[in-house]
Every structure is written in structure tokens, then in C-alpha cells.
Design a protein around this nucleic acid. Structure first.
Lengths: 342, 342
DNA sequence: ACGGGTTGTGAGAGCGCTCTCATTTTGGGT
DNA sequence: ACCCAAAATGAGAGCGCTCTCACAACCCGT
């Protein structure tokens, strides 16, 4: 026990030790560490030197306990690992978030957990590990979020399912308008048997993109029945595409609710010998790297994923800084990107 | 300030409050919370009830400060975000790690940072945020690790570059033997102009897989000059493949040091009209989802990435539990998986 | 009935930091 | 020189928890 691996490490220097080394009080060292302006420059210098000499780093637990802040925020993703890592959309969002956070001195805690977020994750969050939370990929069933919001500031990526007016903060794109622009393009190039592979219908992004699809086809007087649901994964979309092709062998265009899913769809199309865009035109959503990494560049509805991550983090940080002027919602623009697939 | 967003939240209940509610002392509540056996069952019941009633969750900062443990570990990845998210190998490792951690009550902190790990990341780690660290994708230049090791237990994924004998703990596969099995297969199927796309030569995995390549070709009396270096990314490998084809138009087989890179190579091969495996056979390394997600299944050297993650976490946890019997290295097996590409 | 273990519980001292005050020092203004 | 405001510093009380002791309550054997 006393000679154990962990206990064998030399203890880290403390504020107290720095104070002794510099010949000042703890309070003064604390001021220097926190950049308080009311310390004589010469004292700052000597304290800084002492810190340097001892290689001092403030203890986070002590600091959190005393200041009641952790200087870190969580990114909660109620999905399983594979889904999270598999979709480049998440990569982009995380990149945006870290980019904003890097400008601050907050750190990010990634919490990926579908299994039982209500328990381990909630416990972690409520234990005061973070000052605020970002939630992406939020499903209807994830009602743990309500509890979360009573505990700390929360910012959503994508309109939350229980958007109760002005209570939530979120960053999103107009999924309906976005998907409409994509489907409209399909109509414009003369397709008239248009199908869709949707996202999960328990997520606003899934629902809204389907709504956009329907609206365009209805006002164009085209049938809206060629719909297959999938789960934002490539394999799920592949299966859905097979079902779609089975039910509607005559489709000449497919609107797929995400790039990743489109890669799955494209695979099935190739496998079945349907030429893209010749036989079947494909429009996707996201404009992630997945849209350009395959053999055919995808025409896709671009959403600024990275910027959305950045905006989410920015919103949360302002909330944490007690900025009363932050807007509750930040709807960012989409843009149709034309490539080979349509 | 006093009515700010953050401060408006109701304060969390404390141990003290639970003690009052249950009519016992702080110490007793602490014992119940930590599952100490020396509390009368009836007291356990009443304290548990009080905890339930108040919806109490222990404050982590206070607990860490007092116990000098955080119950969390870091996964340090000295790469940039895109590289990390882009490679399914990492996904598998992370999955293995979280799987092991989920069995414990440690939590994971993901630290992905190439830019300046020496600073922000080291500061974070040294601030006592975690009890131990896992390091993957370690490059020669990443000498910050030495400092880390003097602070807390560290387990590496992949042999560390400065493997100074018995000081480090790591989980790895025998990259040399693994790549040898892959290249040998190429020789066995009668290829005699074999090239390779390597990983970064500042990483053991990159170096060792190249070494295996050379050893097989040398003992087969074949030339070992068709070597192009890449960086474990698809695009880097694509560029390297172009260079390789340019320099050695007559190659009839390529050993690529990772599946992800092989997807890049395969793309170039397709683009240049070289049939796989007809004109050029391809053997990769990893056996990640990338090996089977493309049009041609890849023959690849399988390494148990997820199990490696699990083993890393397991090793670290045992280290943290002062288990003196843990082995310093855990070398796991590779296995050649035959698919269409060779 | 009584000493001598157990066993369960409480008191209290920290863990390393922040932050409010009180106190000391400094720097004009006259 | 003197006084007083302003600036710089220090003392000390927590933050919410753990953990070591000391103590109280109970068990057994004799």
C-alpha cells in the first residue's frame, strides 16, 4: 500500500509552497495565477519566477471546490460509439466546438452514451464535473435532458424535440428549407419518381428533412409515397435503399437525408447496376467529407457543421459568462452544392 | 451578476444536508455512499432514503480534493481532430477502452491535440484532472510523455518510441510479424514487384511494418526499393500511391500499412485503370470497417484493435489499483484475413 | 456480573484553492 | 511635513468531502 505505484509519485507543488518560495501570502500567489491587476509588477515577477522554479500547476479539484466552477463543459451524444465515430458530421461539429473552446480556457468532456445516459452520464454531470453542456443528436426519448437543464446551462445542436418556446438554446439549420432546395433540384432536372431515405423519425433533423421532401413533391404534383426510414448509418441506408428499390423499381431519383447514408445508398445502386446520375440521381445532406471521398461526387445540401459546433460552444460560453443578451436560437444557412450525383 | 443565468440554478444538496436529513453524522453518510461494510443495515436504509429524497449526488471536486483521486483517466491522442475521427482504427480502440471503463467507475477524458500538447494538455493532466493516462498514436517527437510518466501511471497503445526497457507499460501487436505475414502472402501468390505505402516513420507502427516488408522481400530475393511514405490518412496514401506508380509502373502488388490508407490507394488504382487484384494485388493492415466498406474487400492483417483498447484500460486500472503483478507489455496476435484484394 | 474485544458512529482535522475583509503600504495634495 | 484616499497585501474562513482517531455500544466467555 505505501509503496504502491500510485503513491510513489512525488506530490505536486501547492499554492502554499509557491507562496513560501516567493515570500508572499497565498492570496497574492492566487492573484498572480489568476491575473489580477492589483499586484505590484515586481511581485508578479518574483511570484512568476517561483511558480516556474517549482513547476507549479494549480490543482483543479481545489480550485473547482472553492470557486464553484470547473472550467469545463460536456458534449453529450446520446448515440453509441460506432455511430458517433462513423459519421463525419460529428467530427466536424466536434472540431468546431474545440476550436471555440481552445480560444477560452474551458476544456471539453466528451460523453458518448446511448445505453443509459440517465444514469452514469447524468450522475457524472450532476456531480459538478462541468459548468454546462452541449447536446447533439438528441432523440425524442431522451428526456433526461429536462433534468439536465435544471442543473446547468445547456445548448443543443439541432432543435430539441421538446422545444418549449423560449426556454431552450440551440443552433440549427433550417432542415425543411434545406431539404426543399435539394429535392427541388431533383424536380428541376426533370425527375418525377423521387424517393427518399430518411433519418430517424424521432429526431427533428429526420422529420424536418422528410417534411421538406413532401412539401416540394406535393407542390410539384408528384407522388410522395416512396419513403424508407433509416438511422443515419451507411448500412441502415443500404438496407433502406434495397427496400425502396424493391417497392418502387421505377424511382429515378433519391433524396438521402445524410451524406453518410448516401454512401450506403450509392453502394447498393452500384451493386444493382443502376447508373448514377443516369438511371437514378442522388441528392444528399451535410456536405461532409463523405460527399467527396467516394467515386462519384455527391450533390448535397451543405450545412456548416463545423461552424455550428463553433456557434454552440460560443453560445454556451456566453451563457456561462452570464451574458443576458444571447439569442436563444441560431439558425444557420444551408446551400445546395452541385456535383456529379445529380 | 446575482441574477445571472448560472447563479440562478438551485444549489445541489451536500453530504451535510443528507446527514441532517437522516439524523446521522457526515462520516456515516460518507460510509454509506462509499459502500463501507461497517454501517448497521437499518442505518444504511435510512441514509439511502435520505439520499433518494434529496436527490443527492456527491460533489466530485470535493471528493477528489479530499481523497486525492479523480476516478477518471485520460486518453491522449497527439494527432489532430480530423485524423483522429477519420480513422476507424481509433474508433475501435476507444470502444475497447470505454467498454473496460464502463465496468469500473472510472470515466474517460478524451484529449485530442497535436498543436501543442506540451502546454494545454500537459497542464490539464498535471492539474490533477485524471489519475492516469492512456497514450495512443505516439510519435518520436512527442517527448512530453516523459514528464507525464513522472506524474501519473501511463499506458501506451503501441510500443512507445523511447521504450527504455522495463519502465513503460504498453499494449501492442507484433507489427513486424504481422506485416511479414501480409507481404509473404503477396510473395506466395506469385507477385514479384512488390511496393509499399508506409505509415509515418516517426512511429513504431510505421517503422516496424516497413521492416517486416523488407525482411520478407529480402529473404525472397526480391527488390525492396518500391517504398513510399505516407501519414496514415487516405489522402496521404493516395498521393503516395501516385508517386509509387510513377516511379515503379511495373508494381504488381502493394502492401499498405493501414486499411484507411488502402482506401486511398484503391481509389488511385481505380482511377488509373489498374485492376485489383488482377493488375495489382493489395494487402492492408488493421481489419477495420474500412476494409470491407469499399467495393472490393481488402485482404488485410487483422489486429484486435478493440481488444487492445480494452487491454490498455485494464492495464491502467490495475496500475491504479496498485497491482504490482501487472505485466509491462501485452503483445496481442495478428492474423491475415484473405478477401478479394489479394 | 465483569473485563476485553469487536463493531458502529461521531468529532474534527485537513485536501488546495478562492474570496471577503481588515490591515498595511503607497502616493498625492496641501 | 501631515493627512487621507487609493492601492497592495495578508489573515482566515470556508468549499464538500475523506479519513483517522477516539469514543460508545454491543457481544462473548467466564
Amino acid at each position: 500500500m505505501t509503496t504502491g505505484v500510485r503513491n510513489a509519485r512525488p506530490p505536486q507543488p501547492t499554492l502554499e509552497m509557491v507562496a513560501a518560495e516567493a515570500g508572499v501570502s497565498r492570496a497574492t500567489v492566487s492573484r498572480v495565477v489568476n491575473g489580477s491587476p492589483k499586484v505590484r509588477p515586481e511581485v508578479v515577477v518574483s511570484v512568476t519566477a517561483a511558480i516556474e522554479r517549482l513547476n507549479y500547476v494549480p490543482n483543479r479539484a481545489a480550485r473547482s471546490l472553492a470557486s464553484r466552477q470547473t472550467q469545463s463543459v460536456a458534449l453529450v451524444v446520446p448515440e453509441d460509439m460506432t455511430k458517433f465515430f462513423g459519421d463525419p458530421y460529428f467530427a466536424a461539429v466536434v472540431q468546431g466546438i474545440t476550436q471555440r473552446l481552445d480560444e477560452s480556457d474551458y476544456t471539453l468532456n466528451l460523453l458518448v452514451a446511448s445505453s443509459d445516459p440517465r444514469h452514469k452520464t447524468m450522475r457524472y454531470l450532476r456531480a459538478g464535473n462541468v459548468d454546462g453542456a452541449l447536446v447533439i443528436s438528441h432523440h425524442t426519448g431522451d428526456n433526461f435532458v429536462a433534468d439536465l437543464e435544471s442543473t446547468m446551462p445547456v445548448v443543443f445542436g439541432g432543435r430539441p424535440t421538446n422545444d418549449s418556446g423560449a426556454n431552450n438554446y440551440f443552433v440549427d439549420v433550417d432542415n425543411i428549407a434545406g431539404s426543399m432546395s435539394g429535392v427541388q433540384h431533383l424536380v428541376d432536372i426533370g425527375r418525377h419518381r423521387i424517393g427518399t431515405i430518411t433519418g430517424p423519425v424521432d429526431m427533428p433533423a429526420g422529420i424536418d428533412r422528410l417534411t421538406g421532401f413532401r412539401q416540394v413533391l406535393e407542390s410539384a404534383g408528384l407522388p410522395t409515397d416512396a419513403v424508407e426510414h433509416a438511422d443515419f448509418t451507411a448500412s441502415g441506408a443500404a438496407a433502406a435503399t434495397r427496400r425502396l428499390l424493391e417497392r418502387f423499381p421505377d424511382v429515378d431519383a433519391i433524396f438521402v437525408a445524410s451524406d453518410l447514408m448516401a454512401t450506403g445508398a450509392l453502394g447498393v445502386l452500384a451493386e444493382q447496376g443502376r447508373a448514377v446520375p443516369g438511371d437514378i440521381a442522388v441528392v444528399a445532406f451535410d456536405d461532409s467529407p463523405a460527399a467527396t471521398s467516394g467515386p462519384i461526387g455527391m450533390t448535397t445540401v451543405s450545412q456548416p457543421s463545423k461552424e455550428m459546433g463553433f456557434a454552440m460552444a460560443d453560445l454556451l460560453l456566453r451563457l456561462l459568462a452570464d451574458d443576458e443578451t444571447v439569442p436563444h436560437r441560431n439558425i444557420m444557412p444551408t446551400r445546395l452544392i452541385l456535383r456529379e450525383s445529380a
